[in-house]
Design a protein around this nucleic acid. Structure first.
Lengths: 217, 217
DNA sequence: CTCCGTGTGAAACAATCGCTTCAAGCGAGT
DNA sequence: ACTCGCTTGAAGCGATTGTTTCACACGGAG
């Protein structure tokens, strides 16, 4: 029921953003018409151009708002401090990102971000500067703590990318995994299992990569 | 020059597919008009509806053709046999996928695939069945060889996903990495470096995950 | 009551889309 | 030379798009 029309007692502006968020995430900027948005929000066609300047401004506000909602709802340091061991900090980080991308409730930030990755608009610029950059710095500090010193900047970047990739693959490749992976693509009910695996995998890899004199090679 | 108009001596059908591939990859199905395609291919507007049934059929043919080109150009087992050690086989696999996603020449398969991941059409179905599934089976066999027996199907899937994620992140997150990562996003000239890192990272992780009685925990 | 700013409603705007139509061009076969 | 099938060209069709316009409803301030 909440998926068809927005609760009509809120003010028009918020109803428009709710409806637009869901539609934009599902079909993208271009494939969504302002008529669809207004119908879903139970508003008049002119409402979009009145409350926002035009369709594109509405989209930008939706994307930024969706990111901020996801960031509030899924912090990346829940239950940990900077003094905790890197493994624990990494688990909190991974759990947070997984929570964000698996949350399909309104507004579905994961889908909006995925679309922005493929078709970047200026809506992404603010999100990157405001969110991605400090978020990457956090992951970088965790990895640095786990790997010890003696890492070049490039090596550090590769390690961070490996972790980010392991997490985001569950969103970007969901369509393919649904068909190819035995058991289908993991869902939000397996966040614990997935984060445990990613942390174990990555910590083992970091130890192996940063301490080569151990085994073979 | 090859980027503006297609060489006009080839037959119209191929020129249309070339132009459409480049445009679809750059802007997506919806944002590309048949008029743009025909102008770039130096063909008449009616040519699309004559040689292909409609815009959508043209798109489907472009996607399938782009995948087959990428598969021919970048095999996943170059220089290796099934008898080779898993590390060598994995490196060939990773190098192949990296080659495909970093190749921006026409048709840019990576971009087309990324768009299909976000907005799946029936064009993806054939590619998945014809390409993704055996490709996943190959990776699965490599991982199984590396990890030894005693893996549940789910554990095996998680390991494969981790490797796929590490590779695809360099395509899906390129826009963000360009701004956030120190040194910018890696390019196709760093394929060797990246595959070495991914293989070392993953092999170390697999050994750590599948042999827990070693260190701590 | 009157006025006026905020917000909404219905209608229409110009532009652009995919697709169709139909005539003409072209080259090979007879 | 003539015809026939394949291909191309120019024009236009109907539908849909984002946006604008303008009249009207409402509700507090003077």
């Amino acid at each position: 029921m909440t998926s068809t029309t927005e609760s009509s007692n809120a003010n028009t502006r918020e109803r428009l953003m709710d409806a637009a968020g869901e539609l934009f995430a599902a079909s993208g900027f271009r494939d969504v018409t302002v008529r669809q948005i207004c119908q879903k929000a139970q508003a008049n066609i002119a409402a979009v151009n009145y409350h926002f300047r035009d369709k594109e401004s509405l989209y930008r506000e939706v994307v930024l708002s969706a990111y901020r909602t996801a960031r509030e709802r899924y912090p990346l340091n829940v239950g940990v401090t900077d003094a905790d061991p890197p493994e624990k900090r990494l688990r909190a980080f991974v759990r947070g990102i997984l929570g964000r991308i698996f949350d399909e409730s309104n507004p579905p930030w994961g889908r909006l971000l995925a679309r922005e990755m493929v078709d970047p608009t200026h809506a992404l610029d603010g999100v990157v500067e405001e969110g991605m950059r400090p978020q990457y710095a956090l992951l970088s500090s965790i990895v640095k703590q786990a790997a010890g010193t003696g890492l070049t900047e490039a090596q550090l970047a590769r390690l961070c990318e490996a972790i980010v990739g392991q997490v985001l693959v569950y969103h970007t490749c969901r369509v393919v995994m649904q068909k190819v992976t035995p058991g289908g693509a993991p869902g939000r009910e397996q966040i614990d299992e997935l984060s445990d695996h990613i942390v174990a995998f990555s910590m083992g890899a970091i130890r192996a990569v940063t301490a080569p004199p151990g085994g073979k090679r």
